[in-house]
Nucleic acid binder design. Structure first.
Length: 257
DNA sequence: ATGTCTACTGATAGTAGA
């Protein structure tokens, strides 16, 4: 079984690109972030034609998350309790042998912006949501765009980035708190020294200069980690395909036994 | 080194957000 996470930066603008990726990689369950689409406008027919069911939590213009799956899932959660004002950022579903949750974590904007403390509080609520609703002894996935580079190895700036947005001790403490609830970073578990990134700014030729961050994660409980055969950051699909513009994020996928 | 992309709007160029 292949599971994946991908911040697509706008579903309407990315639809043909997403279709190409689904046809090429054939994932079974995908968490999508940054739909920037209202639920009423979600093109269910397009995904049905490709063989996917979709559960959607959308809003106008910004944010928005969805789960695509070969088999229908049972909706568990739409939105993070108490955080509705911060946008449509969480959706989860139960599949036969797996609980799958995907999140679009707040960016924070700058260290001085009000959104930065709100970002930290959002992570605190996410951890509380996990303690309340999920079981570390069950096969469970938490994936998405975390907007945190957990360690120096996850940033093109290395330790020089420490203290800047995505690299602060406060953000990294929040990420580590999720791991402490019984989650494992599947890419890092499989590639202990891997220096691959999942996001590159559109500006300044960042992709070609290698100026990236690893902020898109597949986290899994021990039962998931023990089934992992491969974890890949799909860098090829951060590039233009057939003249179609890529998202600023690459898909990340894992193959489970 | 800020050179892009997306979606929105008393739209048709400019702004906000990432």
């Amino acid at each position: 079984m292949r599971i994946a996470t991908w911040n697509i930066n706008g579903l309407k603008a990315r639809l043909d690109f997403v279709r190409l990726w689904l046809e090429t990689r054939q994932p079974d369950i995908v968490g999508l972030q940054e739909l920037k689409t209202q639920e009423e406008a979600f093109p269910h027919d397009v995904f049905e034609d490709l063989g996917y069911h979709a559960l959607v939590h959308g809003q106008k213009a910004w944010n928005g998350v969805a789960i695509l799956s070969r088999q229908p899932g049972e909706l568990l959660h739409k939105g993070l309790a108490g955080q509705d004002g911060f946008g449509a950022r969480l959706i989860s579903a139960r599949f036969d042998d797996l609980v799958f949750e995907t999140v679009y974590c707040p960016n924070g904007k700058t260290l001085e912006h009000d959104d930065f403390p709100r970002k930290l509080a959002w992570f605190d609520d996410l951890a509380e949501h996990w303690r309340t609703h999920h079981d570390p002894d069950q096969p469970t996935v938490l994936c998405g765009d975390f907007n945190i580079a957990p360690a120096a190895l996850d940033s093109w700036r290395g330790a020089d980035g420490d203290g800047s947005l995505f690299h602060t001790a406060e953000e990294r403490r929040r990420f580590d708190a999720l791991l402490a609830l019984g989650m494992h970073d599947l890419y890092r578990a499989h590639h202990p020294d891997g220096n691959a990134f999942s996001w590159w700014d559109y500006r300044g030729g960042a992709f070609h200069r290698g100026h990236g961050l690893r902020i898109d994660m597949l986290l899994g409980t021990s039962a998931v980690r023990d089934r992992v055969e491969a974890v890949e950051i799909d860098r090829e699909f951060r590039k233009k395909q057939d003249g179609l513009t890529a998202s600023d994020h690459a898909p990340v996928y894992a193959d489970l036994r």
